[in-house]
Amino acid sequence: MRAIASLFYIGFLRPAPGTWGSLAALPLAWLVLTAGGFWLLLPLTFVLFFIGLYTTSQVTHEGDHDPSWVVIDEVVGQWIALFPVGYGAAMMGVDYLALYPGWISGFILFRLFDIWKPWLVGKADRRGDALGVMLDDVWAGVFAAVVSIALAGFAHGVLM
């Protein structure tokens, strides 16, 4: 369980294990997108959410409800933050890496919302259970995706 919850021990890297987990999520997302596109990333994110919920509940049943080494939640949140990249690249018929600004903004914004914990992110985090551990990163990923979409709209003159 520790291996899965820590993303095969990446969560034990220091400093900032959450950032390491988010960084590791990027090439994993690229592999998934390359193998099956957005329509593979989407269901795998849901599957990983439930795997993360189960493993997190198993490793946290005694003691700390959100140990820093548990980073499977960062992978789920980071993948959600990258949904606009996966969908946008598929819709435009371009290589996923051609949307590199979306990868960068998705990563930075996800980390920002995950650390800052505004509104629903903080509310989920305060649950104090495995579901809260997973949901705070889901919300951080959603917020990062929405802001990335808005930034792309401004960059391309759509929202001006």
Rank of each mutant, 00 (worst) to 15 (best):
G36W: 03
I149T: 04
R2A: 14
F12Y: 15
G128C: 13
A150F: 08
S105N: 11
V75A: 03
D129T: 05
L131Y: 11
V47L: 15
L131N: 11
K117Y: 08
L33K: 01
L53S: 10
M134Q: 00
P67M: 01
G102R: 04
G21K: 05
G11T: 09
W20K: 04
D114L: 08
L44T: 13
A29S: 10
S6D: 11
I51H: 05
H65V: 15
G36R: 07
V75S: 02
I104K: 14
T55D: 09
F154C: 11
W69A: 04
F83N: 07
L112C: 12
P84L: 01
L33P: 01
L82Y: 00
L40H: 03
F154W: 15
T60G: 06
G106A: 07
A98K: 13
E74S: 09
L109P: 04
A24P: 07
V142R: 06
P84S: 02
S22K: 06
Q58M: 13
I72L: 10
P118W: 03
A124S: 02
M92F: 14
A150V: 10
V76Y: 05
L42Q: 05
S68K: 10
L13T: 08
L112V: 15
W69S: 02
F38R: 12
V47N: 12
L41W: 00
L7D: 10
D95V: 11
T45C: 09
A35D: 11
I149H: 06
F8E: 14
R111T: 10
L135T: 12
L159H: 09
W39I: 06
A29T: 04
I80P: 08
V142F: 09
S68D: 14
I108W: 11
G36M: 05
G141M: 09
L97W: 12
P101F: 07
V59A: 03
A89E: 09
M92W: 10
V85K: 07
V146M: 14
L31E: 14
W20A: 10
G37A: 04
A150P: 02
T60Y: 06
D73T: 00
V158F: 14
W30D: 07
E62T: 09
A35H: 12
E74Y: 03
A29L: 00
A145V: 14
R126E: 15
V133M: 03
M134N: 01
L109C: 05
A155Y: 09
R14K: 15
A152E: 06
A90L: 13
F50L: 13
R14L: 10
A152T: 03
V71T: 03
I80F: 08
G21M: 10
F107Y: 12
F113I: 04
L131V: 13
D137G: 01
L7Y: 13
L42R: 07
A5F: 00
Q78I: 07
P101A: 11
